[in-house]
């Protein structure tokens, strides 16, 4: 799913995320999003692609958002560089 909740209001976003959660019981769901809060909220694992499409880090979501391995990822998700 490419930006499945982009430009949606919070209620519609919540419905989409609930649907993804239900689907995840039977399927692997891959989501592309620029919304860091959404990625942290609904994913089990996170891959971070930065400038040029380079895969910089891939790990459990909790690890990525609590203590990322890469300083570039840390800077990106904390908003220190875009």
């Amino acid at each position: 799913m490419d930006e499945p909740a982009s430009a949606l209001d919070p209620i519609a976003t919540s419905q989409i995320e609930d649907l993804i959660d239900d689907l995840a019981e039977e399927f692997t769901v891959i989501i592309v999003t620029h919304n860091m809060q959404q990625a942290a909220r609904i994913s089990d694992q996170t891959a971070v692609f930065l400038t040029g499409g380079e895969l910089v880090e891939f790990d459990d979501t909790q690890q990525v958002f609590e203590n990322p391995e890469s300083q570039r990822v840390e800077d990106y998700i904390t908003g220190k560089f875009g």
Binding site: A40, F65, N67, E74, T78
Partner: peptide
């Protein structure tokens, strides 16, 4: 601010 990573810690 919903801090994450080092900011969250």
């Amino acid at each position: 601010q919903q801090p994450v990573a080092g900011d969250l810690r």
